[in-house]
């Protein structure tokens, strides 16, 4: 499913002295099956933008379309269901007595049948890489990484066609990060899900995302394939961002070894490039 926003403006606390224009006339479209990253300095409006995708925030002006249909009126309820948003620190939303009940929460709200719920919960819990034994435990006795997966399962169980993740790996250790991103990457590849990833980590964005949207002060500053965006290092640095560390390293190396390619975004690419150079030398 695709997302399109046109002329989207959002003002917090409109009509008070605390008024804040968080989004300023945004146009953006995300195609079906795309994996898009949103980066931007803190306060640039990333979270505000994605909260429009399932109608949590209503545009001050402008429109949001899901699969070509305007997110408004009678159809809004149905359209919102297509978009699952995983918030930052989603484990803070856990509340049920058991993991099972917590994951099933949305399905129960939808009034689905019991055996259908059971099937979906078990499938999802395996999908996020947890064992079924965990279902009877209290969510509050799990480890941080496990909690995060349970919380994600609570969204994935609703089978959204579009998955939006706001800093899904914040506060996890490197291994936890990799596992979460592998999971997301798998969902994108095997389930053909449209994925929108908000992240502060240029490394993660460079590694997993196909197209990047760069936000600055409520506007879209740049938008394009990862490689072309991370090539404009000066522009990124001007708005408080950066390219992945490895890109900087390769640029420095190129000063010494002019024949290597310095358009490198991930450690894997760098390794391949350097091996190629060593073999040639």
């Amino acid at each position: 499913m695709s997302i399109k926003v046109t002329g989207l403006t959002y003002v917090y606390m409109k009509g008070t002295p605390f008024e804040k224009i968080a989004l300023d006339n945004i146009d953006l479209s995300i195609e079906t099956g795309e994996f898009v990253g949103i980066i931007g300095h803190t306060g640039s409006g990333k979270s505000t933008l994605v909260q429009h995708f399932n109608g949590l925030l209503k545009p001050t002006s402008g429109s949001v379309y899901i699969n070509g249909e305007k997110l408004e009126g009678k159809r809004a309820r149905e359209l919102k269901r297509q978009v699952g948003i995983v918030f930052q620190y989603p484990e803070h939303q856990l509340f049920e007595e058991t993991v099972y009940k917590d994951i099933a929460f949305g399905l129960i709200k939808r009034g689905e049948e019991e055996n259908e719920i059971d099937k979906k919960v078990r499938k999802t819990v395996r999908m996020v890489g947890l064992s079924e034994d965990i279902l009877d435990k209290s969510p509050f006795e799990l480890s941080g990484g496990q909690k995060r997966r349970v919380a994600m399962a609570g969204i994935l169980v609703l089978e959204p066609s579009i998955l939006v993740l706001d800093e899904p790996a914040a506060g996890l250790d490197p291994r936890g990060r990799d596992e979460i991103f592998e999971l997301i990457s798998n969902l994108h590849k095997s389930n053909k899900m449209t994925v929108v990833l908000v992240s502060h980590s240029m490394e993660d964005v460079a590694k997993y995302v196909e197209r990047v949207v760069v936000m600055n002060k409520g506007r879209i500053e740049m938008c394009g394939p990862v490689r072309s965006v991370f090539n404009k290092i000066d522009e990124l640095e001007r708005i408080g961002l950066a390219a992945p560390q490895i890109t900087y390293l390769m640029k420095r190396l190129k000063e010494k070894i002019p024949e290597i390619n310095d358009n490198i975004l991930t450690v894997g690419e760098a390794k391949a490039e350097l091996e190629k150079y060593i073999r040639k030398a």
């Binding site: 948003i85 803070h92 939303q93 929460f105 609570g154």
Partner: peptide, 13 residues
């Protein structure tokens, strides 16, 4: 506000 949004995202009304 954050928790309400998170729960609304999974169907709370």
């Amino acid at each position: 506000d954050k928790i309400m949004k998170a729960q609304a995202s999974r169907g709370a009304d």
